[in-house]
């Protein structure tokens, strides 16, 4: 079953066309990796899935992006509602200047949940789901900034997962982390695929091959190839893909 569908997507920053005629389907509860050199459009494409580009001056989208068969750019779509469904984790951990507990509870409270018992339960669940609970259960009221970079990133994942999204977007979520924290994030990705559809942008080829079910290779605003990750990393059909993943690019 398809979770996300892009239909002939073109995207512009003013006169510059950042994405060219991209069509793809992302299956539900799968992990899809976007790879490609810097400036190829993969992050721009990712950000279209929760309308993060809406406020970029001069930005314009042609085509359709459907989540659960609903065009998320159709008139009347509430962006805050959309972002409840489509969570996001960024390259650098960005906890709020609040306590660990408040960071995870934030999304629930913003969405009007007042039941303290329910909030506490969800915070614990989300922290457990992000493999952080054992490390922070005795200091939930401490500042989130007191955590290490890897812990902060898992806190951000817990924060995103607390509102039970059905899609999680990850933009180079481990690029600023050490190998141990990276391994924890990758393990989380594999565990979370039962609950959410994950789209991850990464420059780390091995990360893409380890965690994703499908991989898309982008180059100069075009999606060159999109296939099962095994195919992309063993026998890609396009020469450009092979050149990129084997380091023969340019």
């Amino acid at each position: 079953m398809e979770k996300i569908e892009a239909k002939d997507v073109n995207f512009y920053y003013g006169d510059f066309q950042a994405l060219k005629h991209i069509s793809m389907s992302i299956p539900q509860n799968k992990v899809v990796a976007f790879i490609g050199p810097s400036g190829c459009g993969k992050s721009t494409f990712l950000r279209l899935f929760n309308r993060m580009n809406d406020l970029v001056p001069g930005a314009r989208l042609d085509g359709e992006i459907l989540i659960d068969s609903r065009n998320i750019y159709a008139p009347g779509i509430q962006v805050d509602e959309l972002r409840k469904e489509v969570g996001m984790v960024f390259q650098r951990p960005n906890p709020f200047p609040k306590s660990i507990f408040e960071n995870v509870a934030y999304g629930l409270k913003v969405n009007g949940v007042r039941d303290k018992e329910f909030i506490a339960h969800r915070v614990e669940e989300a922290l457990k789901g992000a493999a952080l609970w054992n490390e922070v259960k005795d200091k939930l009221n401490a500042s989130a900034f007191a955590l290490s970079g890897g812990q902060q990133q898992r806190l951000c994942i817990a924060r995103a997962m607390a509102v039970s999204p059905s899609v999680l977007l990850m933009d180079e979520p481990a690029s600023a982390l050490d190998p141990i924290s990276t391994a924890k994030i990758e393990e989380l990705i594999c565990e979370m695929r039962d609950q959410v559809t994950i789209v991850i942008v990464t420059h780390n080829m091995q990360q893409a091959s380890r965690v994703s079910d499908k991989t898309a290779f982008f180059y100069m605003g075009e999606m060159v190839e999109y296939d099962d990750t095994k195919v992309i990393f063993t026998n890609p059909h396009k020469e450009a893909t092979q050149n990129y993943i084997t380091g023969r690019f340019g």
């Binding site: 080829m205 091959s209 990393f233 063993t234 026998n235 993943i245 084997t246």
Partner: peptide, 9 residues
């Protein structure tokens, strides 16, 4: 070098 694709083959 963790080769992939044609290099791995």
């Amino acid at each position: 070098f963790t080769p992939v694709a044609v290099d791995l083959r």
